[in-house]
Write a protein that binds this DNA or RNA. Structure first.
Lengths: 235, 235
DNA sequence: CCCACTTTGTGCATCGGTTCACAAAGGGAC
DNA sequence: GTCCCTTTGTGAACCGATGCACAAAGTGGG
């Protein structure tokens, strides 16, 4: 008996595909709310802002869930993607660092929506420890290990100052955490097997500035005035 | 006369390289503060969390700024990368949407550090209009076009609710803005030539959840119990 | 039952990015 | 000046991702 299924799904969905699945899921949820029963790859791709061939190939990595001539069943696809992403279980998230950003994250609605639950807020500043934010008590960083264990936290969000991030990371990793979302502007060094995702506002701005400069250069000076640095004559 | 320079720099640094330059810049700034005069690709790569061959290739796209046998001059390289990224001029940034996130962004120190200046805060809620945040007056969204023009804003940060983002984007684009950093969880549709960068907290979490699930699966159930969805028998 | 039409799933060419490995280039000792 | 050591800059192989284009599979009408 030939196990056709495994052909597509057997261990390993491309990373680029994984990064787009949440996008598809969001688009599908919108369609579900609007009462759509099925959707074609063309329409879904449009809503998600990608090319339809790419969408089909992405979905084909999960399995063969479409119907030729018809499209994809919206609810069924939502279920499949959710399951693949692990959103059918719920994840307890701890936010470390309750400054402006940590507060914003704690209050961010889209967080809880699907699968994620803010289970703890921690900070080192005695001034904010004990505050009630988004229905949670802010706890002292000394409690970090205990809180992680007690609440079954499996994802940690770092919203601390840069100087504290590595230290906190080391502690949560020692406690068995292997998934970290880091907002602090530092390169964390972590052992094999720990997943770090980094969100860095100033890097995003710098990338924009690069392109913006290119655009305005093209308008005005142009390529000719490319070499206007002080010294540095190169051949 | 052969223009060897253009070989490397002529129009176009790979996108992947551009995304890493800010990382190098941050590492270099740290070294500069610690008084280091030169740095090898090996050391800089380590500090930035990348492979040294990749670092060298990245830098080679800007020009030939290293010295064989020695390494790179820290200050000089900072200057070159800054210039390439367009950080030698300063950019006026407007933040639209002064909720929790907008407030966090306005107060974020690393923002101003190099080249960026928060020049305006705008919101639709009359409750917050007039508030003073991070030394700025919050202005009403009706003033959007006027403020952009008056303050010479060239980068807009969207921290509005999802429902408002597209509308605000349309307005700022009409005003000539071509660089947008979007925190709202929507796919913006924009004309050719407008650069959008998207930061999406819930997508990052979902990607983490995917990997976390894989890891715990491997520990417990394993690959055998991969097909446990209700209906759906596939061949 | 057959035909025309729609839409998926995928083989294949292509592209951009990463990594290896090494020749070329510079520094310093003698 | 010559030799040895260090480190850059890059050619070339490799790898993953993208997009085209089409065969396969399904629907609906007559």
């Amino acid at each position: 008996m030939i196990r056709r299924l495994s052909q597509a799904r057997e261990r390993g969905i491309p990373e680029a595909t994984v990064a787009r699945l949440p996008l598809y899921l969001r688009a599908l949820n919108g369609m579900s709310e609007r009462g759509l029963a099925t959707v074609s790859s063309e329409d879904l791709a449009l809503a998600a802002g990608v090319n339809s061939a790419k969408l089909r190939k992405d979905l084909s990595h999960l399995g063969s869930y479409g119907t030729r001539g018809v499209g994809y069943d919206v609810e069924y696809l939502i279920y499949q993607i959710s399951r693949e992403l692990g959103l059918t279980q719920d994840w307890a998230v701890a936010i470390v660092g309750v400054g402006n950003l940590g507060r914003a994250l704690a209050n961010y609605g889209g967080f809880v929506s699907r699968g994620f639950r803010v289970a703890a807020l921690l900070d080192a500043d005695p001034e904010v420890v004990g505050d009630r934010i988004a229905g949670l008590n802010v706890e002292h960083i000394d409690e970090l290990e205990a809180v992680i264990r007690r609440r079954g936290v499996s994802i940690v969000v770092l919203a601390t100052p840069a100087a504290a991030a590595q230290q906190v990371a080391d502690r949560v990793i020692a406690e068995g955490i292997t998934s970290i979302l880091n907002f602090a502007p530092v390169v964390l060094s972590v052992p094999e097997g720990v997943d770090i995702r980094k969100v860095d506002l100033s890097i995003e701005l710098q990338i924009l500035a690069f392109h913006e400069q290119r655009k305005t250069d093209r308008m005005t000076g142009g390529p000719a005035m490319a070499e206007e640095w002080p010294e540095a004559v190169d051949l």
